[in-house]
Design a binder for these strands. Structure first.
Lengths: 123, 123
DNA sequence: CATAAGTGTTAGTGTTTGCTGTCGTAAGCC
DNA sequence: GGCTTACGACAGCAAACACTAACACTTATG
């Protein structure tokens, strides 16, 4: 699950695609225009990104519009944080922190401490 | 640079190795004992991890002791944070974008057309 | 219904990658 | 010196991956 998401992220072209559709919605053709490879190649990359939940797609006439899925990115960030921080928090933490950060970052940190457990992670 | 680091992280066995030597120093043989593959295979993984600066090695007699290099992990985390936050310090931006996109999808598409090819991708 | 535009899908290909098996090398022990 | 331990280095192989080319499908437009 997380493994496939990581594999999707590794490909440089897919990271670039993710950057393109992070804030705006783009059609497959518009995305392909940013690269030198053929459109089918980009279509495959989009399929991979959609399969792992990093982008969403909606049809608009003959076009298909893609957009980054913030939740997918959040989940990946949560996993990576967990990986490095030694199971300091759970998956839902990042979303809570993001919400709390709008008013105060310190509050988010406090939430992390509150939700966290002992980090005696001697693997 | 970051690309090779990401590639090193993607391999599940290398992530497991990284977990093993995160807090304690282990010899190549001890690390290999945790896996079903042969020692040369683990040796190759260790070589990759060392090449990208995710682990350090020191010789102790006939043994070679490996340990995670925290700085390497920090650099990768910094890159990933920069990638997702787009050097916009606000953590809660994603939620706002997702909410706003529902009401201003047409505007987003228009913006995309207007933006055209500002970045041809040189990751 | 016929045609064109916009994409996804499938088959096939070259390259990369992780693994095994064998060999070479440096450090300790008799 | 000769032997064992511990490890890396070098081919060789099989699977995975990204790409291209050709085809199929869906949606407007006449």
């Amino acid at each position: 699950m997380i493994d496939s998401t990581l594999k999707a992220i590794v490909e440089p072209r897919r990271r670039e695609i993710l950057r393109l559709v992070r804030h705006v919605e783009l059609s497959a053709g518009e995305i392909a225009d940013h690269f030198d490879v053929t459109r089918p190649a980009i279509s495959q990359h989009l399929g991979v990104l959609e399969a792992v939940g990093l982008v969403t797609m909606r049809r608009a006439g003959t076009k298909r519009l893609y957009r980054a899925r913030p939740e997918g990115l959040t989940e990946l960030r949560a996993f990576l944080s967990d990986f490095w921080d030694d199971r300091l928090q759970q998956l839902g933490y990042m979303a809570q922190a993001a919400e709390a950060a709008q008013t105060a970052e310190a509050a988010a940190v406090a939430t992390a401490r509150k939700a966290g457990r002992d980090d005696t992670g001697t693997a």
